[in-house]
């Protein structure tokens, strides 16, 4: 019998394969391998989608149906799904395949972390505070934003590596299959703007939800504050690029800073800040 956890395990390994294709395609400059990476990533995305839908159905079979988006395990799975989707859509539009290494690596890491760290993967009912359609809107939009920033992070790393080797006018090897620097910079900006839009929707939907559930749209809790910090950093990048004409390396470095904020908003707040608070109590 196929169940959601089987499909999720297949996806985990699928992403590993796909990442390996992308990486070896770049390293050995073989376009064919990149195509394999792309095809396999689409297939895995389909399998993962089926897995997520199945998990949703299973929750109904358990008698309390709810969207599979409400604990760390499920959010990691959804993070992998959104990164894969956003990256593949970028690929479809730009027709460059060389940028898939980091997005697929993160897809794999998210799935692997969800599956192998002994995290609680049981489907549990929601506590009353989370029972709201806003939950779905809020989580989906935030993660699409994070996915955009993750893809931008991947582009930025490749950009910085590539730019460091610029003296060589005919890049061979790893950089041969990457888009020209100017294009990468443009894609990077578009991914940042894309992420910024979704993060804005995510923050605002969270605020509206908080207001409808307990009466304040903003209460400066650490998670909220960190998402605002992330948002400010990306707003700064957009302005710096647009008005002060910062391009290329500077935007790439700032995108790395922004991504660090994303990671902290997602993991750090849960693990470190709550930790700080409990140490504070000793």
């Amino acid at each position: 019998m196929i169940d959601s956890s089987l499909l999720l395990s297949i996806s985990t390994f699928g992403f590993l394969f796909s990442f390996t294709f992308y990486l070896s395609g770049l390293v050995f400059h073989r376009k064919g391998l990149l195509t394999w990476g792309s095809v396999s990533a689409w297939v895995v995305l389909l399998i993962l989608s089926a897995g997520i839908v199945l998990r949703w159905i299973e929750s109904y079979q358990l008698g309390f149906g709810r969207a599979p988006l409400s604990n760390l395990y499920e959010s990691l799975v959804f993070a992998a799904w959104s990164i894969a989707l956003v990256y593949l859509l970028l690929e479809l539009r730009t027709k460059y395949r060389g940028l898939g290494v980091f997005p697929l690596l993160f897809c794999f890491l998210a799935m692997a972390y969800a599956s192998f760290s002994g995290m609680d993967s049981v489907i549990r009912p929601l506590v009353p505070a989370l029972k709201s359609n806003w939950l779905i809107i809020h989580v989906v939009t935030c993660f699409l934003g994070y996915a955009g920033f993750t893809v931008s992070f991947g582009i930025s790393i490749l950009y910085l590596l590539n730019a460091a080797h610029k003296p060589n006018p005919h890049p061979r090897g790893i950089y041969a299959l990457l888009p020209p620097l100017k294009q990468m910079d443009e894609f990077n900006y578009q991914m940042i703007f894309f992420g910024f839009i979704w993060l804005s929707i995510g923050i605002i939907s969270g605020a509206v939800w908080a207001n409808s559930a307990w009466g304040t749209y903003w209460s400066w809790d650490p998670k909220e504050t960190w998402s605002l910090i992330t948002w400010l950093v990306y707003a700064a990048i957009l302005h710096a690029r647009n008005i002060r004409g910062w391009k290329g390396n500077r935007v790439a470095w700032l995108s790395l800073v922004g991504f660090a904020c994303v990671l902290f908003t997602y993991f750090g707040v849960n693990f470190l800040l709550s930790g700080l608070h409990s140490y504070g109590g000793l």
């Binding site: 960190w226 910090i229 950093v233 707003a235 700064a236 710096a240 904020c261």
Partner: peptide, 18 residues
């Protein structure tokens, strides 16, 4: 100034969450 304010707001918010 805009960039300075953005980064300052971000930085003090970091302190605030500690």
């Amino acid at each position: 100034l805009t960039l300075i304010i953005f980064f300052t707001l971000a930085a003090v918010s970091v302190i605030g969450t500690l």
